[in-house]
Amino acid sequence: MRKRIAYLSGLAAGLLVAGAVHAADGSWGPGADDAAFQAMLKSGFREAGIAKLSRLEQDATQAFCSDPKFAESKEAAGKRAEIEAANLASIKWPSDGKFLGDFKEGEKIAQSGRGLTSTDKADQVNGGNCYNCHQISKTEISYGTIGPSLTGYGKLKGNSEQAQRETWSKIWNSKSVNACSNMPRGGHMGILTEQQVKDLVALLLDPDSPVNK
């Protein structure tokens, strides 16, 4: 078992979320210990617009995934499962039990990368950033490749209630499936509304959606 230390020095710097436990400083080279790192964070930023300094505070998932060498190691398998379970347990399911919204709206949300930067307004409608990382509808040729292609997603996965639940989980909280996914937790972090997540599930699963044509 690798030695772990409680992240107490972080508390001193006022930047830590309760309960976050971090791998030993061992993952980091000389001088990059918790105290020095927290001091650097604390002195390095100023708030800008809606991007407040509190955004530097990590939740347990973020703290765990910020040390990828440890997070991907064999010893961390149990902790990864714990993080996935906690994220899964926190998922909010659609209040009316319906998973599928409007795929046309879903396409618009997937196209938009707007929202939550220091230059955005608090009341603006956020986008899902999906095309920044995924190929989705075949007709859109400007797509990113950080995530896998989702073209034909529903054709492969079907449109059963199980398929809908799984797709909802991934979009609402990607870390419920993969602890340190590069994908944002759209619903969990309040980036997307319940209706927006429904529209995105429809974009991926609705047989009439361009994704499945």
């Binding site: 980091w28 080279g29 990059a32 790192f37 650097m40 964070l41 991007a51 955004r55 530097l56 505070e57 990590q58 998932t61 973020q62 995934c65 910020s66 040390d67 990828p68 939550l116 950033n129 870390k175 944002p184 937790r185 972090m189 309040g190 980036i191």
Partner: peptide, 13 residues
């Protein structure tokens, strides 16, 4: 190097 891997904010980036 440590900063490079430090994830946070609403998008966990």
């Amino acid at each position: 190097k440590r900063m490079f891997y430090y994830g946070g904010g609403p998008h966990d980036f």
